[in-house]
Amino acid sequence: MTPLTPSNPLTPATPLTPSLTRRPPCTLLRHGHRVVGTYVHRPELPGTVAPRPYLHPVRTLGGVTVTGLRPAEDPAHLGVSMAIPEAAGWNQRHLSWLLRDPDGFVEELSWTAGGRQLLLERRTVAVRSLGTECWAMDFTSALTNVTGEEIALGGAGHAGGGFFWRVPRRPEPAHVFSADGEGEAAVYGRPADWLALATDDWTLVFVGATGDTRADPWWVRTGDHPGVGSALTWQRPLPIAPADTVTRRIVTAIADTRLSHPAAARLAAQLSDRGAAV
């Protein structure tokens, strides 16, 4: 996945004390008394890695980290985030909180290029309980065109854009399967109601929770660059008319064990807006 490239590097704020220089502003997500995710809404990163808000670390209820941050081979991969391939240079910036609770938040963000605001995003992230060994992250992004003219997200030849989850590298790659296939070749670049990555330590089940989200192809890698994305753009631009809104919703179950295909399907049925039809 190619992340958006900001037009201007983000200038770090002046630290109040030396201990804060490596701790940008963040919001903690909790499941009961456990911290299961950290959301960095004003990252202090070089412009070369497309600074944008991201979630890292995200953990299972047992404390296992299931996100990766700026690996050497992909320094622009930032945990769980939203990105759009765009050669002109788009910058994503936190504007305000509409709601911020221990188990979730609603945020407004601005997407700009060349000093001009193109999109206003309303992002909702919520923690959902699924028992003692599993929880779910409910991630919704609503992008509104505020330019007064049609714009296009992505571009020809881009395979990606949208929601992306970088997972840590492992000696043994995760097993990938979906509602419709098994193995990376069988699921890459194809729509599916849900997709899972399973290891001996954890399983992630990514569920398209709206019809438009389910229609987007999945980007998935399990080897040297492991991660999963729900591709908002795929080989062609996505046009948005003036004042129109594009909404995508991914609900991700995060389990402390290796789940079988039937178990992942049952979780997906709980988390989809189509219920047992998944």
Score class of each variant (00 low, 15 high):
T2S: 12
P6Q: 10
L10Y: 01
T11G: 06
T17R: 14
T17P: 02
P18V: 03
S19M: 08
R23G: 01
P24A: 12
P25K: 09
T27N: 10
T27K: 13
L28Y: 01
L29F: 03
L29M: 02
R30P: 00
H31F: 05
V35K: 00
V36E: 00
L45D: 03
P46V: 00
G47P: 02
T48Q: 10
T48F: 05
R52Q: 06
T60Q: 01
T60L: 01
T67C: 06
E73A: 13
E73S: 12
D74Y: 04
A76I: 07
S81L: 01
A87N: 11
H94A: 01
R100Y: 05
R100K: 13
R100Q: 14
G104P: 15
F105G: 02
V106F: 00
E107N: 12
E108W: 02
A113H: 14
L120E: 11
R123T: 09
T124A: 11
C134P: 00
D138P: 00
F139D: 12
S141K: 05
L143M: 15
T144P: 03
N145A: 05
V146T: 06
G148V: 02
A152T: 14
G155P: 04
A156D: 09
G157A: 04
H158R: 08
G160N: 08
R166S: 14
E172S: 10
A174V: 03
H175T: 11
V176N: 05
D180K: 08
G183F: 04
E184P: 01
G189I: 07
P191R: 03
G208W: 11
A209P: 06
D216Y: 02
A231G: 01
Q235W: 08
Q235N: 09
Q235M: 11
L238Y: 08
L238Q: 12
P239H: 05
V246D: 05
T247D: 05
R248G: 13
D256S: 08
R258L: 09
L271F: 07
S272C: 09
S272G: 09
A276H: 09
